[in-house]
C-alpha cells in the first residue's frame, strides 16, 4: 500500500489560511533544526520557543483550514500528505538556517511583517482569524524583539560578526518582497474585510527593518528583483529536501496512527 498525497479544494479563504499555516510550519521546522547545535545554550532555548510558537500557530491555522474545507482533512494530512508543489509558504521560510546571523536575519524580516500583520488581523471580520491573530500577535512581538536585539549585536559586534550579518542581509533581501504580494483571490478577501491588505504593512516593515539595520550599522541593499513563487507552489530546491525529512515516517508507513 502506498500513500498518495491529498488533494485540497483551495477556495480563496482555504488557500489564504494554508499560506499562513505553511509559513509558520516551515519556519518553525527550520528553527527546530537548531536544537543541539546552537552557539549558546540560552539561545537554543529561545530558538526552540520561537519554533514552538510558530508550530502552534500553524496547528491553529490548519485546524481552521480543515473546518473551512470540510473535506475530512486535518493538520497532519495537510502537513504530511502534501508534496512541495502543494505547499504555499513564502520562500523566505524554507530558506536554510545558514549561520546564526542568517537565522536571525530571516527571523527579523519575517517577524517585522508578522507583527503588524497579526495586529491588523485582530480586527478581521472573520472571528476565528481574529482570535488566532490576538494570540499570535503577542508571540510575534516577542520574536521581533528577540531577532532585532541579535541583529543589532551581530551588526555592531565584531568585524567578523558584522561581515556575516551584512552577508545575511544581502543574501536574504531578495526574499522580502514576496510577503507583500496580493493576488486576485486575496484582493477579494481584503475587500470583504476578512484579511488585511499586505501593502498596508509595507511602511511598518520598512520602518522597523530600516531602524534595526541602522542601529546594527548594516547597509540596506537597493531594492531590486524579488524572488517569488512560493505562494503558488513554485518553491526553491530546499523545500523538497525539507519535506522528505519531515514526511518520511508518514510516507513510509501509510495509514498508521502516531
Amino acid at each position: 500500500m502506498t500513500t498518495t498525497s491529498i488533494r485540497v479544494n483551495e477556495t480563496p479563504l482555504v488557500l489564504y489560511v494554508l499560506r499562513r499555516a505553511d509559513d509558520a510550519l516551515i519556519l518553525g521546522h527550520r528553527l527546530s533544526e537548531w536544537i543541539g547545535h546552537g552557539p549558546i545554550l540560552e539561545e537554543e532555548m529561545a530558538l526552540g520557543n520561537i519554533g514552538l510558537d510558530l508550530i502552534g500557530q500553524a496547528r491553529s491555522l490548519y485546524a481552521y483550514a480543515a473546518e473551512l474545507e470540510g473535506a475530512g482533512n486535518d493538520e497532519d494530512r495537510y502537513a504530511y500528505l502534501r508534496d512541495a508543489p502543494q505547499y504555499r509558504n513564502l520562500l523566505l521560510a524554507e530558506h536554510p538556517n545558514g549561520d546564526f546571523g542568517q537565522t536571525m536575519m530571516r527571523q527579523l524580516f519575517y517577524s517585522a511583517f508578522a507583527d503588524p500583520y497579526w495586529r491588523a488581523m485582530a480586527s478581521s471580520r472573520d472571528g476565528t482569524l481574529a482570535a488566532i491573530a490576538a494570540k499570535s500577535e503577542k508571540e510575534s512581538a516577542y520574536h521581533l524583539r528577540h531577532a532585532s536585539e541579535w541583529v543589532i549585536r551581530l551588526g555592531d559586534g565584531t568585524e567578523e560578526s558584522h561581515e556575516r550579518a551584512q552577508e545575511a542581509v544581502d543574501q536574504l533581501w531578495g526574499y522580502t518582497g514576496e510577503m507583500f504580494e496580493c493576488d486576485a483571490a486575496e484582493r477579494a478577501l481584503v475587500a470583504a474585510g476578512t484579511v488585511v491588505d499586505p501593502a498596508a504593512l509595507r511602511d511598518a516593515w520598512d520602518g522597523t527593518v530600516g531602524s534595526v539595520l541602522s542601529r546594527a550599522t548594516l547597509t540596506r541593499p537597493k531594492t531590486g528583483w524579488m524572488q517569488s513563487g512560493g505562494r503558488s507552489g513554485r518553491h526553491s530546491e530546499h523545500l523538497g529536501l525539507l519535506l522528505s525529512v519531515m514526511q518520511h515516517l508518514q510516507r513510509t508507513y501509510p495509514g498508521a496512527t502516531w
Partner: peptide
C-alpha cells in the same frame, strides 16, 4: 541564575528559561 552578555539578553533568557 543564568549567563548573558548584557541586561537585555539576560531579561529575554530569563523569560525563556524560567517562565515557560
Amino acid at each position: 541564575s543564568l549567563h548573558a552578555a548584557d541586561a537585555t539578553l539576560a531579561l529575554q533568557a530569563a523569560r525563556d528559561l524560567y517562565t515557560r
